[in-house]
Amino acid sequence: MTTAGSQSDPRTTDEFIKGLWRDNPVFVQVLGMCPVLAVTNTARNALAMGLATMFVLVMSNIVVSSIRNFIPKQVRIATFILVIATFVTIVDYVIQAISLDLHKALGAFISLIVVNCVILGRAEAFASKNKIVPSALDGLGMGLGFTFALLCLGVVRELLGSGAIFGVHVFPDRYQDWVIMILPSGGFFTLGAWLLVFNAIKKRKANAAGTAKEAA
């Protein structure tokens, strides 16, 4: 056991890091788009949604990973969905207990975490094949990556749309709010723009690698 643990050490750190950047669920895999667009009109909502999703992701990964040997293959997906739906229901009640205003702002999108493809995807592709600790780290990394992406959108949309970040005004009063950024269309534009940035970075890296190869 100890050798297996030490062997997988560099790998486990990798499980954690990959979700943040290289395999970022939103910017690279383009998964789970609905909440990304819908609840990012303020940074606060984006953060809350990201944390809720992360909680469900980590918990469902842990549970799926710990029961992976007892579950016959045929009823696999059904059990995964059951587990995920359970944790989403829990999150729903906990958020209601913490803040009703937040619950109202996120609305049906808390329940809709169930159908977020990222969660079922990680349960099926990773947690059902790996030990508990790497699965938990994978969930944590993917969850953080998701939260990071939501915050990227939330901060930009709130800053331009209401001149504030986390409700604190940063622009002088004469700043004219870009109302469109808070409206649904602003979500599409902002996400499109972020994808542009990521594509440009990728392109530049690929070009640099290409020229390096040529030089060598």
């Binding site: 029961i67 007892f70 579950i71 016959p72 045929q74 009823v75 059904a78 059990t79 059951l82 587990v83």
Partner: peptide, 11 residues
């Protein structure tokens, strides 16, 4: 019965 056991257990 194993499928039932798994589903009922999880349930």
């Amino acid at each position: 019965w194993r499928m039932y056991r798994a589903m009922v257990g999880i349930g």
